[in-house]
Design a protein around this nucleic acid. Structure first.
Length: 286
DNA sequence: CGACTCTCCTGCTGGC
DNA sequence: TGCCAGCAGGAGAGTC
């Protein structure tokens, strides 16, 4: 499922392919995936792509006309670039022709499970207003910002990390991976985390997201880049999807439980529920 | 407001 | 071999 690293990989590839090109809406097979006006104009038909931005897991395609199309991929959403004439795969809901200087391609929004959405905005201001309800972007989150966003919550830290209004971009995979790297138990109440724990967690979130981007993201099953490539970061997962296997650090079997209804994998030995007791001579180094 | 639970969706998996 | 329940999960809506 696309989380921040996957969406960032998609953004980079789409930026290379679409910026400066003109889109034309070819078809919209399902009106119900569109939030807002679903007119060709709102869907950027006959608009030139100026820029593609990302915040958290969302993409914003900014057009020269001022209209903005926000793409939310949900669990199984894909933005695919097909050659003209290539048959769009099943569950493709919208398609645009992409005019370049010399060739044409087809951009397709595909989403089998249909948790994804296309949101249309008449202006960048309207779109910014929507993004302002999201928390700070996880890729550059600082310890201070993370603590500020979360510290007053009493829910398990894992639940807080999944709430896009608190911090944007972390989903189930990277929440588990970051908590493991920060040695924080997923059920630890957020308001009991020490300053040192928030510092480790912020660093772990940035690191794991950057490493995943460098690997092209994590493909469990559905995720593909616009040119249909799989991401390779699954091979670097330390806890997610490793329930019952041994912790790579200490050899304890990785455990699984449910937090906020989400499968959560963690190492019962490496990840502590309580702040580390300060050692003689000061708090543990991060 | 915060914290839960429910709901939307399809495709894969495991049990019988 | 075939059927079906169960599960996966992002995020908004609804409830308390």
């Amino acid at each position: 499922m696309p989380e921040l690293p996957e969406v960032e990989c998609i953004r980079r590839e789409l930026s290379r392919s679409l910026c400066g090109a003109t889109l034309r809406l070819l078809w919209l097979r399902r009106r119900d995936i569109v939030v807002g006006a679903a007119t060709p104009r709102a869907l950027l038909s006959n608009s030139r792509v100026h820029q593609i931005n990302r915040h958290g897991k969302q993409l914003a395609v900014i057009s020269d006309s001022g209209a903005v199309l926000v793409v939310r991929l949900g669990m199984t959403g894909q933005m695919l670039l097909l050659r003209a004439g290539e048959k769009p795969p099943e569950h493709s809901h919208a398609a645009w022709s992409v005019s370049y200087a010399r060739r044409r391609d087809v951009l397709v929004f595909r989403d089998p499970r249909r948790f994804g959405r296309l949101e249309t905005y008449a202006s960048a201001d309207a779109q910014n207003e929507a993004w302002n309800t999201l928390g700070p972007d996880a890729l550059t989150i600082s310890a201070a910002l993370l603590a500020e966003a979360l510290a007053s919550r009493r829910v398990p830290i894992k639940s807080a990390l999944l709430d896009q209004h608190l911090i944007a971009g972390v989903g189930n995979i990277y929440a588990d991976e970051a908590l493991f790297r920060a040695r924080v138990h997923p059920c630890a109440p957020t308001n009991t985390l020490s300053k040192a724990m928030f510092a480790r967690l912020a660093r772990a979130i940035r690191t794991v997201l950057k490493e995943s981007i460098a690997c092209g993201g994590s493909t469990l099953r559905d995720y593909r880049t616009p040119s249909n490539e799989r991401g390779q970061f699954v091979e670097h997962h330390r806890v997610y999807g490793r329930s019952g296997l041994l912790c790579l650090k200490c050899g304890t079997p990785i455990a699984a439980l449910k937090v906020s209804g989400r499968t959560t994998c963690y190492c019962p030995s490496c990840q502590t529920r309580e702040p580390t007791a300060p050692k003689r001579g000061g708090d543990a180094r991060s």
